Amino acid sequence: MRARYAAEVTVSDGRRFASLGRVTVRNRRLALLWLRRQALRLANAHGCAVSDASPGDVRPVRFHGSDAPEGLRFWATDGRRQDDAIRALEAGFPLLFTVVDPAVGLSLTLAGWRGSPADL
């Protein structure tokens, strides 16, 4: 059976950890596409209501500064970073990208990895 890919968005305040959402898909491009969508949704929702949510989208996060949303937006739209991300997944390495909201010590991580269906 072909390898499947998982992607997840998590948040932590340094003491507690929570998953905001997770998806399992059939290939690395779909995993990266889902992560990019979530990054842009979270960045664009900074200070606004989220109106474009789909059933598989993560719950919104309230950022207290603009660094984290700008970091998410940059990661999702920068061609070099997206090329690096797809190559990491292709090589079997996990994809991890974390932004920090220094105002409250909140960290948000986008993660993607390859695994067999039994491992997910």
Rank of each mutant, 00 (worst) to 15 (best):
A43F: 02
T98P: 03
R41H: 11
G115H: 02
L106S: 01
D83S: 14
D84C: 09
P117K: 07
E8L: 13
L89Y: 03
R41I: 03
E70D: 12
R62T: 12
P60I: 09
W75A: 00
P69L: 09
N44D: 11
L33G: 11
V61M: 01
L20T: 00
V25D: 05
V104K: 07
A6H: 08
L96D: 09
V23G: 06
T77M: 11
A118R: 13
A18T: 06
V99C: 03
R36N: 09
A3P: 08
R4D: 14
D101M: 03
P102N: 03
A53V: 11
R28N: 06
R26W: 08
A43M: 04
G71D: 07
D52A: 12
R37H: 12
R114T: 02
D52V: 06
A91D: 10
D78H: 15
D84Q: 12
A39Y: 03
R28K: 15
L108G: 02
G115W: 02
V99K: 07
W113S: 11
D78M: 11
S19P: 03
D119R: 08
P117F: 08
L20V: 02
A49M: 11
H64T: 02
M1Q: 14
L40V: 12
R59P: 01
L108V: 12
S107H: 06
G65M: 00
L120K: 10
H46K: 05
R37E: 08
D119H: 13
S51P: 04
R26G: 15
R81H: 11
D101K: 04
